[in-house]
Nucleic acid binder design. Sequence first.
DNA 1: GTTTTTCATAGTATAACAGTATGTTGGTAT
DNA 2: ATACCAACATACTGTTATACTATGAAAAAC
Lengths: 143, 143
Amino acid sequence: MLISTKGRYALRVLIDMAEHSGSEYIKLKDIAERQEISEKYLESIVKQLVKNKIVTGLRGKGGGYKLSKAPDEINVGEVLRIMEGSLAPVACMEETNLPCPRVGECRTREFWRGLNDAIRRYTDSFTIADLTRSYSADYDYVI
Amino acid sequence: MLISTKGRYALRVLIDMAEHSGSEYIKLKDIAERQEISEKYLESIVKQLVKNKIVTGLRGKGGGYKLSKAPDEINVGEVLRIMEGSLAPVACMEETNLPCPRVGECRTREFWRGLNDAIRRYTDSFTIADLTRSYSADYDYVI
DNA sequence: GTTTTTCATAGTATAACAGTATGTTGGTAT
DNA sequence: ATACCAACATACTGTTATACTATGAAAAAC
């Protein structure tokens, strides 16, 4: 499993913020209820997003979280990499890891590199805006 | 991490067999030594490959394992799926899992489906033959 | 100064990973 | 026949990650 609940929940939180905030702070309790995810667990997830400047927190009454950037400025691949640490499909494709001692005789390295690239290309091609429900497309507008 | 040592080692074993066997049985001990992997651990991996008809085992002296099919008939994606159980990047993309109860309101499903497809397309586009060192390409031929 | 919300730290049950250990079965060579 | 060899089978183990829960401190609004 490449993506754990951390990455999946993070995307849902960001989409929720993009869909519900009008430059207002939203409290985690609301998001947790809408998304049916434990608020306490979400705290640990959102903390990571704050640390990486994806969202901004404000304490106290009327506080909460909001996106630090516009939804179309938030890259999905970057978010997933923050939450999962890495999206490398194998250990030898993680930048932090020192090169494999068998690299000289390895028959599979290029195969893994290609898979790594495919995953990165795909995930990096989406923004949070791409994942929000298009307002005009399916909103039943009624006066 | 999408791929564990099970999947990585399985590919190395199959490549080793493809490169060293001339329709002969190779004993695990030799593969384990060449690949510098615990023979005992490899046993558990090869057992899976036998069960799935990727390799064939023969007991006793002169016995060992060999590929059940030609290297270019063995699909890398299939091998990885056998070893890892699934290559789905998220739980909701596993065929065996029952559909997510939030599917109606899920904003991320199509994103995950796309990632799942990208991984499957890539891994299914390789055979073991693609991963073996091409004999003619870089062998220093000397009389 | 009380309420509200984020922020911070610590703990916990479960499962998967990456093996190890011991023994059995079935072929081969002598 | 029997000694040997290598696959086959089952059970166990240490470590790490996952997916949380619990308790409390800090700051902002009222």
